[in-house]
Design a protein around this nucleic acid. Structure first.
Length: 222
DNA sequence: CACCAGGCAAGTA
DNA sequence: TACTTGCATGGT
């Protein structure tokens, strides 16, 4: 059994199923994926609740909303001018593709790597945001790598600190069965680990569910 | 008061 | 290519 499987077992045993992504629809996942960039989920949740309560959470409505108004609506999520623009860039693609395909589901039913390539053409959609949309909205088998993932693997000496997004992603995908449900649960568990035990500048902790995986002291403040 | 949060792109050398 | 910086709110 590879170490990534053992870690998954430990995390699931400790935290239980996380039932991600916390959203009511695939489109809500897409919006949340942009808004949560480098931002606490509690703040993102406020922004999404505003959009919901004003019945604005649809591609066409959001797309026709002026950037300044959109920025105002999503203010609590931080970087609101930047994120309004990024959402609009994403909607450029989504509205166009939905018109072409007939529906959001049809758009998502394309090949995984083709879809990933299209998402990555959008200014403001990088690898993590694209993969979050692929996994949690389109339900494609892709492993999402975030800062917590990088940090906990480094801290346990399982990868070099300088490892790239793609290298870390391959570390998981080369050693796990290619299953959407597994990748979904695993990433969610890593985020929970991050929030509770693997925060920036958080000391090595005897309560950590991964304490058996030889934590090491790093040079950096990770 | 300082630091952090489920990134990304653009600028500099 | 390899750093650095801007973007911004709300919780601890």
């Amino acid at each position: 059994m590879h170490v990534v499987e053992s870690i998954y077992t430990s995390l699931l045993d400790h935290f239980g199923p996380q039932n991600w992504w916390p959203a009511d629809s695939p489109f809500e996942v897409m919006v949340g994926a942009v808004l949560t960039q480098n931002t606490n989920w509690a703040n993102v949740s406020r922004a999404i609740n505003t959009l919901k309560s004003e019945n604005l959470l649809s591609p066409n409505l959001l797309y026709t909303l002026p950037l300044e108004i959109l920025a105002e609506k999503i203010r609590p999520s931080g970087y609101y001018n930047l994120k309004a623009k990024r959402l609009n860039n994403l909607l450029d693609l989504v509205v166009k593709e939905v018109e072409k395909s007939g529906s959001l589901d049809a758009f998502f039913s394309q090949d995984r790597d083709v879809l990933r390539g299209k998402l990555l053409t959008v200014k403001g959609i990088g690898p993590e945001t694209a993969d979050s949309i692929l996994l949690y909205a389109a339900e494609k088998p892709v492993f999402v790598v975030d800062a917590y993932t990088h940090r906990f693997l480094s801290r346990h000496g399982l990868i070099g600190e300088e490892s790239s997004y793609q290298e870390i992603q391959e570390f998981f995908m080369d050693n796990l069965p290619e299953e959407t449900a597994l990748f979904n649960e695993y990433h969610a568990l890593i985020v929970q680990l991050g929030k509770e035990f693997c925060k920036k500048n958080h000391p090595l902790c005897s309560e950590c569910p991964l304490r058996e995986f030889e934590p090491i002291v790093l040079e950096t403040d990770w």
